[in-house]
Design a protein around this nucleic acid. Structure first.
Lengths: 182, 182
DNA sequence: GTCCGCATGTAAGGCGTTACATGATTAA
DNA sequence: TTAATCATGTAACGCCTTACATGCGGAC
């Protein structure tokens, strides 16, 4: 029911951000607090332990070289192995489980594809993503039609919202493919 | 950053389902495994402890009265206090934190409003929900416009997906209000 | 009489949350 | 010099995940 293997959503966010440029834990906190990235957790008790775990895995390294750091700052850079791990993680096929349980994760994976994997893989991801959603929507609709009559009103409306969300995501993915092609 | 107070999402799902009719842990598992409710967790290790916690809080009670239960089955019913707690939880105002961090929870709250709170409260919930989302979308768009130029392509597309999701939810809420009025 | 589905649980581990703790640097 | 901000961490706790354990009842 999980199989996400390694990277938690927060760890992926951290690794992805550090892959774009070196960052400290404090930088990460600011990003999470002041940008829509903040959907994913927040604060010291999560970030610093996660940083340490990722460092122990060897995917980032503390690098306090650059000039006079008068302050105690731990600047983390991604390592070669880290970049490989990220690339591999982002190249993972989209499963139906991902679509059902880890939509956040999928969007995060996509958001970090720019520098990490080529445009072909990005487009492939989006195509798979849309296809998996389509398949899942078929299931949802089947259930919906069979249960519609016995569902209470709010339950029915909530289900409609769920289905529409999925459909919107699939549409978005197809539009994104168009944009990426140009 | 949390303040959800008591009920975890899973506990709310369980309490809500039991409020509709008496259920066993196994019934709950089946529901989670075979319906779109399954978005929320799943299996014994989560459900049985949650049931026990809710029972200890006094919101559900094991009731093995009804006739010959040849099997060992723990049938749980909601108590009066449980119904009150549920009603109160569902009547909680929608906060911006909810919209940002607990959208799942909000949808669950809505899905169980049928029997628990009156139609006025349901409509009020939807109105608040839409208004909070609108406010949050304003923030997101402001950030988006200021960051657009420095955002990598996939990051930008992912953000657009996020904003569109919120907007879709607000639209859905307004349509739901119309439907509830008739 | 054996296997599958019903039915309930426990144990270990992971990770995020809350709250607390600490100390350096800069601006007023 | 005092307060705010920079900056990093720890400890306790909760709850979910995975995996394992157990036993009854019906069908073949």
């Amino acid at each position: 029911m999980k199989e996400k293997a390694d990277l938690s959503t927060l760890s992926l966010a951290i690794l992805g951000l550090i892959s774009q440029r070196p960052l400290t834990g404090y930088d990460l906190r600011k990003i999470f607090l002041t940008t829509p990235m903040g959907h994913f957790s927040s604060s010291p008790g999560a970030i610093y332990p996660a940083l340490k775990r990722i460092e122990e895995t060897g995917w980032i390294r503390c690098d306090n070289s650059e000039g006079r750091t008068r302050r105690q700052r731990m600047v983390y850079k991604i390592t070669a192995r880290g970049r490989n791990a990220l690339k591999e993680h982002l190249s993972q096929p989209v499963t139906e489980e991902d679509v059902i349980w880890h939509m956040d994760d999928l969007m995060m994976r996509f958001a970090f594809m720019d520098g990490a994997v080529g445009p072909e893989k990005t487009v492939r991801f989006l195509r798979d993503f849309a296809a998996r959603i389509d398949a899942h929507v078929v299931d949802l609709r089947r259930y919906f039609e069979s249960a519609r009559s016995i569902l209470p009103v709010c339950g029915r409306l909530a289900m409609e919202q769920g289905i529409q969300s999925y459909e919107m995501n699939a549409q978005w993915a197809r539009r994104a493919i168009q944009e990426l092609r140009s």
